[in-house]
Design a protein around this nucleic acid. Structure first.
Lengths: 206, 206
DNA sequence: TTCTCGATACTGCCCTCTGCAGTATCGACG
DNA sequence: CGTCGATACTGCAGAGGGCAGTATCGAGAA
């Protein structure tokens, strides 16, 4: 593999995991699914390429080991890797970005039926509920996977939890509103302007 | 351009906008920035390629117009496009996905200093505050850009608003917690286990 | 009248990233 | 001895991002 590009956030994310302990690529892939996946999702495929770039840049070392005929690569962070990671922490983070196909379907719901809209909102609720359960299970897991990092895990889990709660309560609220509409194109007596005013923080007289 | 791939969510998202009215690619790009960008962000570059694929598939038509020497392409949805969009609304949406580099920096904060962590949280707060102001401005805008779609805008804006509020209050909470820590690696008397238990919904005795 | 500058209207290029298929070994269990 | 899930990867095509580059239009300034 010839590497031309510069370091990406993905590079630093993996460097961060390597700062915790050594990993094989396979382990790294599993660990990313469990932790980083919540706020920096990357396909497993990428996690096999990226560590090689870290090695090329002197931020990590690769050690080939073998179990019988089958080889594996263990990655370890270098002092330069730790320094690079620490520097990166000072840089302003890129803006948050959300991909939410369900919301696209809600936004263009006027091209379809109320049933479709309600079904989409139901699925959004289900997903949020599932994730809340997952987060609760992670918080309840004992022993704690990396006890020396429990404080950071707690901070991170809290964010995810609040996010899911926000989506869940929004979806429930939205379902209630929509049952008041005549159709997806006609909200009937439902007062859109009033809703917008409320969001704008504006007072309106009855 | 030769198109081989199938339709993506981006295809349907643009189809959704075309269901509202006709657009030139340039207008489409601007409109995506204002609306879709909140929950389906795509680079402007992509928005010049995608409509061509819609035309190839018979979901839209392209009309070349000109202002003097400068040409432009106006896209219009076809009846088949409307039907395709309506069908798509029935399919289960892809899972939500968040890219949050700031959270990566928080998660690996133990590789750096408390000041770095507090600075990152400060930037996260600033970003959330900025977006909340933007959302309020959009909700306050009069006249309403597409009045016949005000109810869907109101539903969508509410979600974004709640999301930003959740991030904002989390960041403020996190800052308070962190001031109680001895360092990024040592939370001191701050009780990580208790925090995790709370998230797990578990009761714990004092 | 000419010049500048922001808005309009794109294309090319290189890189990142995804998703899926494909390949192969290891170790436990039947 | 065979199967099956876990381990440990690679190749490839297509989606997507970011940035530089090109060119015209129209309004206001010099």
């Amino acid at each position: 593999m010839t590497t031309t590009g510069a370091r990406t956030t993905t590079s630093y994310a993996l460097l961060g995991l390597l700062a915790v302990r050594d990993w094989t690529t396979y382990e790294l892939a599993k660990q990313v699914k469990r932790s980083l996946n919540w706020f920096w999702p990357r396909a497993e495929r990428k996690l096999y390429d990226e560590p090689k770039r870290l090695v090329e840049q002197g931020l990590a070392t690769a050690t080939r080991e073998r179990t019988g005929l089958r080889g594996r690569t263990v990655y370890r962070i270098t002092p330069q890797g730790r320094a690079t990671l620490a520097e990166w922490l000072s840089e302003p983070p890129a803006p948050r970005s959300i991909e939410f196909e369900g919301m696209v379907k809600v936004f263009f719901a006027d091209a379809g039926s109320p049933d479709q809209l309600l079904a989409t909102l139901g699925r959004i609720e289900d997903e949020a509920n599932g994730r809340i359960a997952e987060l609760a299970a992670m918080a309840a897991a004992r022993p704690i996977p990396f006890p020396q990092r429990a404080h950071l895990s707690a901070i991170g889990l809290r964010l995810q939890y609040e996010q899911e709660k926000a989506v869940l309560s929004w979806a429930r609220w939205a379902r209630k509103q929509i049952t008041q509409w005549n159709s997806t194109t006609d909200p009937g007596a439902w007062d859109s302007l009033r809703q917008l005013d409320e969001l704008a923080g504006r007072q309106r007289r009855q």
